[in-house]
Simulated scan of single mutants.
Amino acid sequence: MNTAAEQHANYQRVARAIHYLSARQATQPSLAELAAHVGISEFHLQRIFTEWAGVSPKQFLQFLTKQNAKRLLRSSSVLDSALACGLSGSGRLHDLMIKAERVTPGEYRSMGAGLQIHYGSCPSLYGYCFIAANHRGICKLAFYDEAQGEVELIAELEQEWAAAELIRDDRRAAAFHDTVFNARSNAKPEKLRVLLKGTEFQMKVWEALLAIPAGELCSYQQLADSMGMPTSTRAVASAIARNNIAYLIPCHRVIRGTGEFSQYRWGSERKQAMLLREHGISDTGLVVS
């Protein structure tokens, strides 16, 4: 079994491959060309890419074409069905039960006075993962690549919860990480709680994101339409950009109506990697959390 550090290293290699293939999609680069760019053998690249993503580099190229993205956007019956169930924060996501709670008005005003928030970082499938949580649930989940990224995330946490007691605990963060990203488990789904802090409109957008099934795509316009606010696409996009809980609140599943995979707070390659993994896992019948 790969260690967390090895998983992180493989993510870095796959991310480089994704960036290269995306930039040169029109020329359909060969496996040899891709391996030379990443700096590993063709055999090694093919193995880690397929093991990590569930699809080969060639299948990835097919998946990330604009035409395929547009086709997925047109196939909105699954999304419509999910949204028809109501925009509750308790929908199934990656075989985990996600319970979304809001901060109370008092907690919002007090900036977390009296709260203890434990935070830390660990390697993950998608680069370094930063997680902060209190007794009510995860209140921040983000990704970064360099040390400076963690410094910036800690500063954000200090600003968002200015009056709370912040305690560094990498071991606890790693435990949360294992619950969120525990791949291929037959165990009974574990209930996760996330604590959301935002305006009423932002809450509605984030709850709508929870209704998008794994492996499905949604455009900003479709999400606005589903909320009964067809003229609020820009406001919806702004609320998505303010999402503080990556992956669990799946803003990575929202793309432009043109099929473009840009506009992601934690990097377009990381967004593509998440979608690729979800798409590959669903195609192969595996379950990944």
Rank of each mutant, 00 (worst) to 15 (best):
N134S: 15
Y11V: 07
Q59D: 15
K271C: 06
A183Y: 09
A163T: 00
C85P: 02
Q221K: 15
K140M: 12
G267Y: 04
P213S: 09
F43Y: 11
T231C: 00
A175E: 15
H118Y: 14
L157F: 02
E260P: 01
A32I: 13
L79A: 06
R234S: 08
N10R: 12
V236T: 08
T50E: 04
Q221H: 14
A246L: 04
L115Q: 14
G215T: 11
E33C: 06
L153A: 04
G127E: 07
C129L: 15
Y126H: 11
S75M: 12
A147W: 03
F181M: 14
I167H: 10
R253T: 02
M97S: 06
I98H: 09
L45C: 01
A187Y: 03
V287L: 12
A113M: 08
Q272M: 15
L34I: 12
I98D: 01
S22F: 03
A187P: 01
S22E: 09
A164M: 03
T3K: 11
L31H: 11
Q272T: 13
N68L: 05
A53L: 14
L72R: 11
Q148S: 05
R47D: 12
G54Y: 00
Y128H: 06
S88T: 14
A147N: 07
D178S: 12
A163S: 12
S76L: 05
L45Q: 07
R109W: 04
T284A: 09
L73M: 06
R47M: 05
Y128T: 10
D95M: 02
A23M: 09
M203G: 00
S56P: 06
A211Y: 03
E278P: 05
R24H: 15
K204P: 02
R74N: 14
H19E: 07
K70Y: 00
G280S: 13
F60H: 12
R234W: 00
L83R: 14
Q7S: 08
N186W: 01
R256W: 13
G89L: 13
Q222D: 00
D178R: 13
N244P: 00
M229R: 13
E269L: 00
S22I: 03
R256N: 15
Y126F: 15
L96E: 00
P230H: 08
S90T: 13
Q28W: 01
G285Q: 09
E190A: 08
D169E: 00
A100R: 03
F176K: 00
S219K: 00
P29R: 09
A142Q: 14
S90D: 14
G285C: 07
R109F: 05
A175G: 04
M97P: 02
S289Q: 10
E33L: 08
H279N: 07
H279D: 00
P189W: 02
M227Y: 04
G280T: 09
T65E: 15
H177Q: 05
L286E: 14
A163H: 06
I167G: 05
L157P: 03
Y119A: 03
P230F: 05
S124Y: 03
N2Y: 08
N134D: 15
E101V: 03
H118P: 03
R253P: 00
S81T: 06
T179C: 01
S262G: 15
